[in-house]
Design a protein around this nucleic acid. Structure first.
Lengths: 142, 142
DNA sequence: AGCTACATTATAATTATTCTAAACTATTGA
DNA sequence: TCAATAGTTTAGAATAATTATAATGTAGCT
């Protein structure tokens, strides 16, 4: 059974027409064991390597943002200019390696649940994100 | 006693020459009761309003980054393309209002200390940042 | 098969930031 | 006090990520 059928259904559910390009995007994003992190640029590169015809940047941006809006992707904030996305949409936190610019997932046992005592009237909490910045520890090696 | 003397000393300590422009930047950043958040653009606007001659974007970027490197300013990561800076350099976390794009400080009593159980060999933790995204709560008003 | 609405695409536009090189100025020492 | 010099400022160009545009293409209904 071709896996693409799932993606066609998935796209329909989300209200997107299943086109060649979008199915390809789905394949690259979701046809894998583990969730992963990527930038739009990464994604375009991956797709270009796997397709004969090239895909437009605009299409990738549009589709990725459509997925994000529907909750199939999560955006991650890091100070660099680039926007990272995560195919792991469950609530979790991240380590960011400032040397390699690599993002690493934390699971529930790595960080205790964050308890926010402050409330702001008329506002609800959309999300709580923890970013732990790490870098090589040269202290001991010198 | 003119307050500028402090800024001249401060700049010298940081290893920057105290020029008109830099002193003006210091005044706008540190001549106030409370710490605050800003983007480089905000800062240029504030300075332009207070000075007859205009200040170059490049100067502001250079100076702000010099301060940041020395620990006199903190950079804050938010998904938008803009980089926010904070004159409050102590360890603290933030609320980000997604409606108004306003940043709000949390103090120690708002969020418990974050305990990270995960360690990555050869890497040290540089910082732990919590960002709580909030937005207007329309659930009850509809 | 053909219509129509939605998609894709290349390209231009926009925005934030960094770079560059020429003009300027604070500091140092004579 | 004044000139030399090393660091600064500046306007504008360059870059990079992202978004908008408008012409062309295509999925899905009839």
């Amino acid at each position: 059974m071709p896996k693409n059928c799932n993606f066609i259904e998935k796209l329909r559910e989300v209200g997107l027409r299943p086109t060649k390009q979008r199915i390809k995007i789905c394949e690259v994003l979701y046809n894998r064991e583990k969730t992963f992190h990527f930038t739009v640029n990464d994604l375009v590169k991956m797709i270009s390597e796997q397709m004969s015809q090239k895909i437009s940047l605009a299409t990738v941006y549009n589709t990725v943002h459509a997925f994000e809006k529907k909750g199939y992707l999560k955006e991650i904030s890091i100070d660099s200019q680039k926007t990272y996305f995560d195919t792991n949409t469950s609530a979790h936190h991240h380590f960011f390696d400032e040397d390699t610019h690599e993002l690493i997932d934390c699971d529930g046992s790595d960080i205790d649940k964050i308890n926010i005592r402050k409330t702001i009237t008329g506002k609800k909490i959309n999300s709580i994100e923890v970013l732990v910045r790490i870098a090589s520890d040269n202290q001991n090696q010198k």
